[in-house]
Nucleic acid binder design. Structure first.
Lengths: 149, 149
DNA sequence: TATAATGTATATAGATTTAGTAGTCTTTGA
DNA sequence: TCAAAGACTACTAAATCTATATACATTATA
């Protein structure tokens, strides 16, 4: 399960994606719109900034905005920055690998072998899906809703 | 990430799978072979038993064994018994659903939409893979190793 | 240049979950 | 009757996650 930190990070990036090309957005505005605790969001945006995804401007009229086009920011990057695990087993994680202490021989572990496949399936989607794709899905869902009603 | 409980559960089922058709295995033996803390394993096997996967026998000469053929026990069942989440977001989980508190409209959430796909991809593998498949993968890995050496 | 708005950094507290342990009871077979 | 084994309940320790608090730095603008 993703941490709230990761979830909030993605949501914040999506909302900044909608604002791409415009002036920076203030933390408090993002926090209010997405119902995210402001102080917590501060930390998260700071991490995303240190990772090179965001530009920030201090002082009055300051805020955050995306450095890159939302088409070029992929979910897998976000998960890695915020430490959200993709793999379901530590011994299968590419970026947060840890040996399973109890394991006798990782190389011949059938359980691990299955969860490598699971990771690859998840990873494929997360590596192909950008912030812009998320925005597009949202639009599609909204339009479908109107059609149905 | 799966809990150790879930990991231990799968490993215990695999080792009992190898023993399928024979006399019950004692907790202490499984614990020793798989390097799992005995008392913790006790709880886990008890859960698997209550869920109908294991037969148990008390007293001298007692122990645990599979009720069903390992071909008929699928990983998804084990995860659900031990509470291991498959979905990466609570609002996407089929069996452990919880609303994301901050979410304004689940129905048009683009993030959720992506993670439904991720869940489906993982679920497909876990619902198709049985304990017997895990055993088979293990054998295949061992044989490949011999060939390579 | 004073002030208010804003981000930065660090520390810490509280809640929750996970992992593991202890102890006692019950059942079974020899 | 005794020892071996599982069943059940409660507890604790550790880790992690979420959130808040505090103090500080920077910037726009009046």
């Amino acid at each position: 399960m993703l941490s709230k930190k990761t979830r909030y990070a993605i949501k914040a990036l999506v909302i900044m994606g909608k604002n791409f090309g415009n002036e920076p957005m203030q933390i408090s505005r993002i926090a209010a719109e997405e119902h995210i605790p402001k102080k917590f969001l501060e930390q998260i945006l700071s991490d995303l900034r240190n990772a090179g995804l965001l530009y920030s401007k201090k002082g009055a009229g300051g805020g955050y905005k995306l450095i890159k086009d939302p088409k070029e920011i992929f979910l897998v990057q976000v998960l890695r920055i915020t430490g959200g695990p993709i793999a379901l087993l530590p011994c299968v994680s590419l970026n947060f690998y840890q040996r399973c202490e109890e394991c006798i021989d990782e190389g011949t572990c059938g359980v691990r072998d299955v969860f490598v496949d699971v990771r690859n399936a998840s990873l494929k989607i997360l590596a192909e899906t950008s912030i812009a794709d998320v925005m597009e899905r949202e639009n599609r869902l909204k339009n479908n809703f109107i059609e149905v009603v």
